[in-house]
Amino acid sequence: MSFSQIFDMINMGLVVIDKEMNVRYWNRWMEIHSGISSDEILNRSIFEHFRNLDTPRFNRNCKSVFKLGNFCFFSQKLHKYLFPLKTDSSFKADFDYMQQSCTMGPLRNGSGAITDIFIAVQDVTEVVMYEQQLLEMNTKDGLTGAYNRRFLETQLCKEMERAKRYKRPISVLMLDIDHFKKVNDTYGHQCGDLVLKTISSVVQSCIRKTDFFARYGGEEFCCILPETKPESAVILAERIRKGISKKVVKCKKEPIKVTVSLGVAGATEIIDSPDRLLKKADDALYKAKETGRNRVVVFNDKKVMA
């Protein structure tokens, strides 16, 4: 009995490549998932069918296996996949190709010389999908789909560091719903939730892909605006304010109108930490509330000097 039957029954791709990068073995799993039969690919260069593999990184790793007898690991994190193979139907929507974790290692002849390398291909699509879901749950607010406060704070640290390093502007915008408690008391929490969702979607439609929008507290939201001076941030804040004031939320057949107050602050030489920047935006927001709500106030750093 030949144990090599196992290679064709195992739930994993197995490929053997020689020093000239010609395919020496292609198991049944690879045949099924790639649609390329063993006959078609054997004794041909792996790059003929998989041109995507001809990268410095892949070649470097092959070399290290032949030369050093190394094992190499192609994690899904960076490579996503080595072989563009079809995923099982239920994951089609999430991924173009099967997500793979691949291992490469040496095969030696009788005298111990490395003549070939093997590549073992594992399908990790399902794991990656769960990982993405977990990640999302960990960084996003379930109700509004905006990022959560913790994510915002870590992101702000990164963005401020980047802004400092490259001497680029960065602004922060704080938004609070006016008289939100009244909405909850008058129409109930379900309607309150709907208002939160609506406001979130208005803001998301106004900001750029590179901005970060988060739910900061109960009815307070925050936006990180990289590459943005306070002057431009104010224009955006105005657009958001107007957008929300025009919006009518229908809940339990009741039309609800809300307004928001916004505070804007930009990083300066003095306002140089995430905490300080958030504090100044919050101060501006407080000012907006104090001076009558439904307005935008920008923090003026001249006041700091005074």
């Binding site: 990184r57 290290s64 050093l68 007898g69 190394n70 690991f73 994190k77």
Partner: peptide, 16 residues
């Protein structure tokens, strides 16, 4: 991932 890759190659070379 580059740290891991270079680390893998360095370690593999020395141990190997």
């Amino acid at each position: 991932e580059t740290l891991i890759e270079v680390g893998n190659i360095l370690i593999g070379a020395c141990v190997g």
